[in-house]
Computed example of a mutant assay.
Amino acid sequence: MVDTSERTIRRVACIGGGTIGASWAACFMARGLDVTIADPAPGAADAARRIIDGAWVALERLGLAPGASPDRWRFYSDPVAATDGVDFVQESAPERYEIKLDLLRRLSAALERDVIIASSSSGLLISRLQEACNYPERCVIGHPFNPPHIVPLVEVVGGLKSARWAVDAAMNFYRAIGKHPIEIRKEVPGHLANRLQAALWREAIHLVAEGVATVADVDAAISEGPGLRWALMGPHLTFHLAGGTGGMAHYMEHLAPAMTGWWPHLGSPTLTPELQRRIIDGLTEETRGRSVEELARRRDEFLIRVLEARRQVDPPPVDEPGPSDVPSAD
């Protein structure tokens, strides 16, 4: 077993410089770390620079660590070269087993055995990805939510061969850079948050398919209602409050039977071409000509304001690592 207690993380390799990888890179640099970015795609360096520059505006508002700079990165087309001398690897290659397996095989052969490899995969199983790796015990999932430089959540998943020290070190590292890591204790496709999203979207599509509501009204049913509460607390705590002074015990006894009675009527729609077109047309009507870029800017501004408001309502405990703490794997 390898102990990472003596490895302080100062330099991170971001393998993949697209939307997720470059956003991760910006996040790491905002915490005062040095970063290497590797991506073989033509024009990838310029694309990464645009993403980093755009992310830095938000990161400045959220707070930078001493020494933070958007220029603390070097670019490589060769992913193996980008890992020379790094202390942590964040892999964000395309979501396909064959691509990641080949990549992880090459990376793991070049890295020291106590350097953690964290995959940003949104739903692949780390146990399968470990099959290609030297020292598979140091491989974990470190799945962010888009955009990684803003959204705090990181899902950490260990596989069949992951060592306890690797999971703990990944959790400590993400926590030290100001993220909110959660450990997924059993491997399932899609991890945790994406499965919850998938369940909600399935019912949202079913309601559109059945003519219950328009695409815009289904979206409003979340954004103008429970989604506002979910920015502060999850479904269990939300229903705990719904139980009044009796909390969840009262909810379970008096309100849960009605909700569980709806479960058999929840839908399992087939996403036919016709239904896909209805969803797309509905979104065209809902967005009223606003571009994806404009909507993303609006989303990011809202997320930043929500995070700023949450800090005022519920500041982090003083004994927990804050955004300015020196990140390490100890």
Rank of each mutant, 00 (worst) to 15 (best):
E294N: 13
Y135V: 09
T272S: 15
A110K: 08
A82W: 04
L303H: 09
G21F: 00
A163H: 07
Y251D: 06
G43M: 00
A258S: 15
N194W: 04
G32E: 03
E203V: 10
Q90W: 01
G247W: 04
E91C: 06
S268I: 12
A41Q: 14
A169P: 05
P79R: 04
E210M: 15
S92D: 10
T270N: 12
L232Q: 09
L192P: 01
A249T: 15
D102R: 14
A38M: 07
R310M: 14
Y97K: 06
S108Q: 01
P181R: 04
G67P: 07
V218M: 05
G43H: 01
M259T: 12
A216C: 09
G190T: 12
L111F: 07
G225I: 07
S92F: 07
V326I: 14
Q276H: 14
E131L: 13
I150Y: 04
H250S: 12
V292P: 06
L200V: 14
V140C: 07
R61D: 08
G63S: 08
A26F: 05
W24M: 10
N134C: 12
E95V: 08
H265C: 10
D300A: 05
E137W: 09
L200R: 01
W73G: 00
H180Y: 13
T8R: 14
R310A: 13
E131H: 08
L101N: 09
A118W: 00
C14Y: 04
R11Q: 10
A216M: 11
A216D: 14
W201L: 15
L153G: 06
T260E: 14
S119P: 03
E187D: 10
T83W: 02
G85W: 05
L129N: 04
V157G: 09
V154F: 06
Y251T: 06
G190N: 03
I279W: 06
V306K: 08
R278V: 11
A44L: 08
G267W: 06
E91S: 02
P317L: 07
L303I: 11
V154R: 00
G190I: 04
S92V: 10
W201A: 14
V35W: 00
E224G: 13
R31F: 07
I52Y: 03
A242D: 11
A204C: 12
